[in-house]
Amino acid sequence: MIMTDIVNLRQARKAKARAEREAEAERNRIRHGEPTSLRRARKDGERRTEHQHEGHRLVAARVGSADGDPPS
């Protein structure tokens, strides 16, 4: 005689439904991206970093006229 595992159908249906909901949630996370609050925080951090970077830029003193022509 071959013995098989006894399966509780209610638990199997719930597990299947749970897996389907999780798969749909993952698809939605991919489709809708990151939350607005995280997106704003990331952009603020990028702006802050860019501002710091620009603040450290070395600017050569311009010599010549306002239109950028070299002095003659």
Rank of each mutant, 00 (worst) to 15 (best):
Met1Trp: 02
Ile2Lys: 04
Ile2Arg: 00
Ile2Pro: 01
Ile2Tyr: 00
Met3Gly: 02
Thr4Ile: 15
Thr4Glu: 09
Thr4Phe: 00
Ile6Leu: 11
Val7Ile: 15
Asn8Phe: 03
Asn8Gln: 12
Leu9Val: 13
Arg10Glu: 15
Arg10Cys: 01
Arg10His: 03
Arg10Phe: 02
Arg10Met: 05
Gln11Cys: 05
Gln11Tyr: 03
Gln11Glu: 11
Ala12Met: 12
Ala12Tyr: 01
Ala12Arg: 09
Arg13Thr: 10
Arg13Gly: 03
Arg13Cys: 05
Lys14Leu: 13
Lys14Ser: 06
Lys14Met: 13
Lys14His: 04
Ala15Ser: 11
Lys16Gln: 14
Lys16Ala: 14
Lys16Asn: 07
Ala17Asn: 13
Arg18His: 03
Ala19Val: 09
Ala19Asn: 06
Glu20Leu: 14
Glu20Ser: 07
Arg21Asp: 06
Glu22Tyr: 03
Glu22Ala: 14
Glu22Val: 07
Ala23Met: 08
Ala23Trp: 00
Glu24Ala: 14
Glu24Gln: 11
Ala25Tyr: 02
Ala25Leu: 11
Ala25Ile: 10
Glu26Met: 11
Arg27Trp: 01
Arg27Phe: 02
Arg27Met: 09
Arg27Val: 09
Arg27Gly: 01
Arg27Gln: 10
Asn28Tyr: 03
Asn28Leu: 15
Asn28Met: 13
Arg31Gly: 02
Arg31Thr: 10
Arg31Tyr: 00
Arg31Leu: 15
Arg31Lys: 13
Arg31Ser: 08
His32Ser: 08
His32Asn: 15
His32Arg: 09
Glu34Ile: 15
Glu34Val: 15
Glu34Lys: 12
Pro35Gly: 05
Pro35Cys: 06
Thr36Cys: 03
Leu38Cys: 04
Leu38Thr: 07
Leu38Gln: 10
Leu38Asp: 06
Arg40Gly: 00
Arg40Thr: 07
Arg40Trp: 00
Ala41Met: 12
Ala41Thr: 06
Ala41Glu: 12
Arg42Thr: 07
Arg42Asp: 05
Asp44Val: 11
Asp44Ala: 15
Asp44Pro: 04
Gly45Asn: 08
Gly45His: 04
Gly45Arg: 08
Glu46Val: 10
Arg47Asn: 09
Arg48Glu: 15
Thr49Arg: 11
Thr49Ser: 07
Thr49Pro: 03
Thr49Glu: 11
Thr49Trp: 01
Thr49Tyr: 02
Thr49Asn: 04
Glu50Asp: 10
Glu50Ala: 14
Glu50Arg: 10
Glu50Leu: 13
His51Lys: 15
His51Ala: 14
His51Ser: 12
Gln52Met: 12
His53Asn: 10
His53Gln: 14
Glu54Val: 05
His56Asn: 14
His56Met: 13
His56Ile: 11
His56Trp: 01
His56Leu: 15
Leu58Met: 09
Leu58Lys: 05
Leu58Ile: 15
Leu58Gly: 04
Val59Gln: 04
Ala60Glu: 13
Ala60Cys: 06
Ala60Gln: 11
Ala61Tyr: 03
Ala61Arg: 12
Arg62Ile: 06
Arg62Phe: 01
Val63Thr: 13
Val63Lys: 06
Val63Gln: 09
Val63Ser: 08
Ser65His: 05
Ser65Gly: 14
Ser65Phe: 02
Ser65Trp: 02
Ser65Val: 06
Ala66Phe: 01
Ala66His: 04
Ala66Pro: 00
Ala66Asp: 08
Asp67Val: 13
Asp67Pro: 01
Gly68Ser: 09
Asp69Trp: 01
Pro70Val: 08
Pro70Tyr: 01
Pro71Cys: 05
Ser72Glu: 11
